[in-house]
């Protein structure tokens, strides 16, 4: 009788633990790791900005939240941000090096966040750098 009770109790504990694990796994789903994803598009910085400035809605439908590769010349560096061809603002992953000089040609890979009409720049985050 006692054995049965212990068995039932331990079964219940295992069940509850499994349920808790499943719930926490669904609730705390993992974030995308942009660095591990393949780029879906590869565009020059000026072209990317042009399509957004021209028709934000259709450009957004195509590029927003996608992992893309962008090429261009570094025109500005500030902290973990670089600007490509004055048109694309790239926020690098925190561990990315920012020892880049203005004028250098780069290709970056990151997530397209959207178009900033105050700066007239496309913003990209979680980016890493492939030197050209």
């Amino acid at each position: 009788m006692k054995k049965k009770l212990i068995l039932a109790l331990s079964g219940l504990i295992v069940g509850v633990a499994a349920l808790a694990f499943i719930i926490s796994a669904t609730l705390n789903g993992k974030h995308r790791v942009i660095a591990d994803e393949e780029a879906v598009f590869f565009v020059p910085a000026d072209e990317l900005q042009y399509v957004f400035a021209n028709d934000e809605r259709s450009a957004g439908a195509k590029y927003m939240d996608q992992v893309i590769k962008v090429s261009g010349k570094v025109t500005d560096v500030e902290g973990h941000s670089i600007v490509l061809d004055n048109r694309v603002l790239v926020n690098l992953l925190n561990d990315a090096t920012t020892a880049f000089q203005e004028g250098k040609e780069l290709i970056i890979k990151g997530r397209c966040v959207g178009f900033d009409e105050l700066l007239l720049q496309v913003k990209i985050d979680q980016a890493e750098i492939n030197l050209k």
């Binding site: 609730l27 974030h31 957004g60 939240d65 959207g114 900033d116 009409e117």
Partner: peptide
């Protein structure tokens, strides 16, 4: 100006719901 897709949550599922169900960031990106 804040781009809605730039808001990061600790919980990725919450981030997904925020974008898809509440803020509808594809239609209203900023």
């Amino acid at each position: 100006l804040a781009l809605m897709k730039g808001f990061r949550f600790k919980n990725s599922l919450m981030e997904e719901h925020f974008n898809e169900n509440y803020i509808e960031s594809e239609t209203y990106p900023k």
